[in-house]
Simulated assay, not measured.
Amino acid sequence: MHASFVPPRQVKIGDAAAFVGTTPRAIRHYHAVGLLPEPERGGDGRRRYGYDDLVRLLWIRRMADAGIALEDIRDATADESHDRAGGTDVAHVLERLEQSLAAQQAELRHRRTAVRRMRAEGSRLGLLSDFVARRLQDLPDGSLRQADLDSLLVTERVFGPLGAAVQAGRFIALATHPDLRERSDRVDAAEEALDDAVAVDDPRVAQVAAERHAFEEALHARIEDSGLARDDDALFDAWEALHPAPAPGPGAMSAAAALGKLPHDLSPARLRCMELAAELDAQEPRKSKEPQEP
């Protein structure tokens, strides 16, 4: 046959959908999401699609059938220049789509690795970032308490992985020095006893503040002696190497904003105890050696 196919100059949406192998509803959705420009309407007020519109619909359908999301197709074509015929440079679009899919694939690998690690850890340790978890990886199983891991999870949300990794040194010291852990438990219990029934000027408030201050001095000295403080310096170097130009990520929250959203259930007496302990800490510089318990 020598007859050539001469398509009509413009067709209605139903004919365009039938030719492409889709539905009028799908084409209207392409318009709504900005994937396909709205065509001119005829004298009857109905959309009319030309040859270039049908070609664009065809390659949209081909890419969609290949599993490419419509949003990705739209984003890849949003800023593309058009050639003389008014069509989009499909090769350039596909290049951008490949880059987008590669980035998504990398993100999926990252998520899968995170989920796999959470399953392997079998505890809250798996919920922490790799940067924090690596500092805790040499500790024996069960040496960290659930409350320790919960505190690290909150710290990472407020101050980021670096802040939580630094705080991890505290829990490493407690996990590897039973005497410090027992002393910490005693101070914690004394603070918890400062409930709403205790007045802020009760002598126990100042006594517990002094105990907290003395314990923090002892803990700091043990951290210094064990070399954990030097590990903190290495953490800063490692963090800077991984993040040479840090920038807030999507949904990032400032420390002040995050702390303001944390629920606090502390009695006035306990808050006063914390203030007194902070004042003692500011008055007395930390010692290089652990102070003797009275």
Rank of each mutant, 00 (worst) to 15 (best):
Asp83Gly: 15
Asp83Leu: 09
Ala3Arg: 14
Ala85Lys: 11
Ala133Val: 04
Glu211Gln: 05
Val187Pro: 14
Glu98Phe: 04
Gly249Arg: 10
His110Phe: 14
Asp75Gly: 06
His110Leu: 13
Glu98His: 13
Asp148His: 03
Phe131Gln: 03
Phe131Val: 07
Phe215Pro: 02
Arg212Leu: 15
Ala76Gly: 13
Pro294Tyr: 00
Ala64Asp: 15
Ala26Ser: 07
Arg9Ala: 13
Asp79Lys: 09
Leu235His: 00
Gly251Gln: 07
Gln292Ile: 07
Gly86Pro: 10
Arg119Leu: 15
Glu98Thr: 09
Gly163Leu: 12
Arg124Asn: 12
Ala106Pro: 06
Leu139Pro: 10
Gln167Thr: 15
Val93Cys: 15
Ala120Tyr: 02
Leu35Thr: 11
Gln283Arg: 11
Leu271Tyr: 11
Gln207Ser: 02
Gln99Leu: 08
Arg25Tyr: 12
Arg56Ala: 01
His243Trp: 04
Pro203Cys: 11
Gly43Phe: 01
Asp138Thr: 11
Glu279Ile: 05
Leu276Glu: 03
Ile60Pro: 08
Arg117Gly: 06
Phe171Asn: 01
Val115Leu: 13
His2Leu: 04
Glu38His: 13
Gly50Trp: 01
Ser129Met: 04
Tyr30Gly: 05
Val166Ser: 08
Gly50Glu: 01
Gly42Met: 00
Ala164Ser: 02
Glu107Ser: 15
Leu108Phe: 07
Ala189Asp: 14
Leu271Lys: 15
Leu70Ile: 12
Asp148Asn: 09
Ala258Asp: 09
Leu280Trp: 01
Arg112Thr: 07
Asp195Trp: 08
Ala197Leu: 09
Ala114His: 09
Glu80Lys: 12
Glu192Thr: 13
Arg272Gly: 00
Asp179Asn: 02
Leu101Phe: 09
Leu108Ser: 14
Ala197Trp: 00
Ser81Glu: 11
Asp83Arg: 10
Asp150Ile: 05
Asp233Glu: 15
Ala16Val: 01
Ala106Gly: 01
Ser129Thr: 09
Ala168Asp: 07
Leu180Asp: 14
Arg84Phe: 07
